[in-house]
Design a protein around this nucleic acid. Structure first.
Lengths: 231, 231
DNA sequence: TTCATCACGATTATCGATAATATGTCAATC
DNA sequence: GATTGACATATTATCGATAATCGTGATGAA
């Protein structure tokens, strides 16, 4: 019991010893529940019952919900409460058109400012992708897919862009983690990521821009079909 | 008997009877103070003192600050408090590169889906701009400038885009409302907005895209020079 | 039956108080 | 003189309770 050793009898330190804020802790658990699908889309989240459930005050729950609201995982209607965001086909299109634009922009900038650190992370991710393809680990591939794109946005060195992108990523997870529609062919996934990564590492910003643009568009089409037009 | 008439003596309804939430009310006042410059950039906002100042509870202040945080007008450091956002040259560049991209995207989409309603608002704004130019009202021109671009983003019919753009707009106000750097030449302002508006109304999405892109870039250069390199 | 109205129950909005923590001060030490 | 550490202080984090409000179903009139 680490920090715990001395703090054994801290009045308010419940359960495990935390360093983080309580509302972040709660937000994490809620986020997990939502992304796992334990909380269904559209489900209502009642502040007081969550407060009882986790033995924290309503204010803390409120703060946690605000956090998730900022990530676009829940929606808030005043005096009505908070609901798990449900994503429509129009939403998917919105998210992907935005991602397409942002990622293309990010890829161009990234190609223009490759750092040693950026190069290393991108290379690592691509290496891991190939490994995941070999072992046929689709869930891992999906995670690496997210990492890959986030790394590119990171390399763009644009803080606000990264913020916006992070929000889009969590919303993407909202409908991607549960379904299994992407990456049926893992080799195919590699084939669609490596060229982009290489273009960036080579500093070819024009090509990076185009590849990123097309990459996203392709995913979007595939996704919408899989999610909504499964006949 | 409506609730307003009978509710004359509502215990907690302070001042006038409100329909809006208290934290929104407070957020409005705070926003105004910040944008007017009454609260300086970097200034610390103490929850309890604001609570006393406006006779509301700390929780309400907290909620209001969260709102402003979402707009990017204040920054939050945990256990440290909330501070009025201060904008650096790098921030201005970030904001404008983002705006350039988003507005170009929005302009293209707007041109592709002009509605009667959209057409009317855009035309009204352009008419008002000409009027402002005639009367030499620079403050009004600035406001119309904001309206113009917001209208375009609105016409794009992309909810998430509008959200992101709104946030960028408030941050733009953070450094634009106080200074007076833009629109020295009002005729010039007209000359730089009308072609874009007309391209959109004509449905020329290619041209709208290019004009929006250049428009923003031009503003950015002018602004950065005026704000940071004024020698 | 159909519609409007009115209590009631559930839930959010707001409050005031207490606990926890960061920051600055000042003395003691090297 | 610089550094460290304990303490006081200011401020956020969290709590539990109360007030306001919304949705709903019951009730009664047309």
């Amino acid at each position: 019991m680490a920090r715990s050793a001395a703090a054994k009898a801290l009045p308010t330190a419940r359960g495990a010893d935390r360093k983080r804020l309580l509302d972040e802790e709660i937000a994490d658990r809620l986020r997990e529940s939502i992304l796992k699908g334990e909380l269904e889309a559209g489900e209502r989240l009642t502040e007081l019952s969550l407060a009882n459930q986790w033995q924290v005050s309503q204010a803390t729950i409120r703060a946690a919900l605000k956090l998730l609201q900022g990530e676009g995982l829940v929606e808030y209607r005043k005096r009505r409460g908070t609901f798990v965001t449900s994503i429509s086909e129009a939403d998917v299109l919105e998210i992907y058109t935005l991602r397409e634009m942002l990622e293309a922009f990010a890829a161009r900038r990234a190609a223009q400012r490759v750092t040693a650190h950026g190069r290393k992370s991108l290379e690592r991710i691509m290496r891991n992708m190939r490994a995941a393809a070999r072992t046929g680990d689709r869930r891992r591939m999906l995670e690496l897919d997210f990492e890959f794109h986030r790394a590119i946005v990171n390399m763009s060195g644009h803080r606000r862009l990264l913020e916006i992108y992070a929000k889009l990523e969590s919303q993407t997870r909202l409908f991607l983690t549960m379904t299994d529609v992407l990456h049926h062919d893992l080799e195919d996934a590699i084939a669609h990521h490596e060229p982009l990564g290489n273009a960036i590492l080579a500093g070819d910003h024009q090509r990076a821009f185009e590849l990123a643009s097309h990459h996203c568009e392709r995913d979007a089409v595939e996704l919408v079909r899989a999610l909504f037009h499964k006949t």
